[in-house]
Nucleic acid binder design. Structure first.
Length: 262
DNA sequence: ATGGTTGGGGTCCAA
């Protein structure tokens, strides 16, 4: 089973690039973040035509919003709301006993100080509540996938320059502390790093604000797929659709993919 | 130190 996560930065304007990705990678489950639409305006027909007969959508107007698109049946699970009422989480149970949690963690604004930037404060609190929820409501022996745009680059080699980004939101010690708390809540495994050594640079996002994203290559790994220990034996492959960043009118994030083989 | 770009909705906010 192939599972992918993609911050799509508006689902309605990206149907073309979603089709390109789906044709090339054939994911069984595609989790989207930042769909930027209310559920009633979600482009169900177009995604149904791409083979996703099962869809769970939690949207809001203009901002945020998440969706799970699937070729295999889904059963809606919790829709968690932390810190504020925003649409940043949706989850589903899959027939083989797995539970999938799709998150869009707050970006946190520009200033990395919770005292003067309420958005950064909200991000830290959000991550703390995610960690607490898993610790209290699930077990490390459960089969759980936690994925999405976590908006944290946790490792030195998850950013283009560790030194230059130490005080930049997404790579501060505070955010890395709470990322670690989420990992520790159920002993999650960072699936992609099972395949790529920690000293190799790896990104899933490149800003729009560069003339040539590939030339400057100032990327960060903000999108993650975490799995609990019972799923580790099934993890056979990963991919990051880096060339997708070159598609016309695409998101600033690219899809991150894993394969779980039965 | 600053500005660079994108999307949504509505003449600005969030990323």
């Amino acid at each position: 089973m192939r599972v992918a996560t993609w911050n799509i930065n508006s689902v309605r304007i990206r149907l073309g690039v979603i089709k390109s990705f789906v044709d090339q990678y054939q994911p069984d489950i595609l989790c989207l973040q930042e769909i930027k639409t209310e559920a009633e305006n979600f482009p169900h027909a177009a995604l149904d035509n791409m083979g996703f007969k099962h869809r769970l959508v939690r949207g809001e107007k203009s901002y945020n919003g998440v969706a799970i698109l699937s070729k295999v049946p889904l059963e809606i699970s919790d829709q968690l709301t932390f810190v504020n009422g925003q649409a940043r989480h949706i989850s589903a149970r899959i027939s083989n006993g797995m539970e999938l949690h799709n998150f869009y963690v707050p970006a946190g604004g520009d200033i990395a100080d919770p005292e003067i930037n309420s958005k950064f404060d909200m991000k830290l609190k959000y991550m703390e509540e995610v960690a607490n929820w898993f610790q209290h409501n699930r077990k490390a022996s459960d089969r759980i996938i936690l994925l999405g745009d976590i908006n944290v680059a946790p490792g030195k080699y998850d950013v283009w320059s560790h030194r230059q980004l130490l005080d930049i939101v997404s790579h501060t010690y505070m955010e890395k502390y709470y990322f670690r708390k989420i990992l520790n809540s159920l002993n999650f495994i960072d699936a992609v790093r099972e395949f790529v050594p920690h000293h190799e640079k790896l990104y899933s996002w490149w800003s729009y604000r560069n003339k040539d994203w590939k030339l400057s290559n100032k990327g960060r790994r903000l999108d993650h797929i975490l799995i609990t220990e019972p799923l580790k034996p099934y993890l056979t492959n990963y991919d990051i659709f880096k060339s997708g960043r070159d598609l016309a009118s695409t998101s600033d994030h690219v899809p991150v993919i894993i394969d779980l083989q039965r």
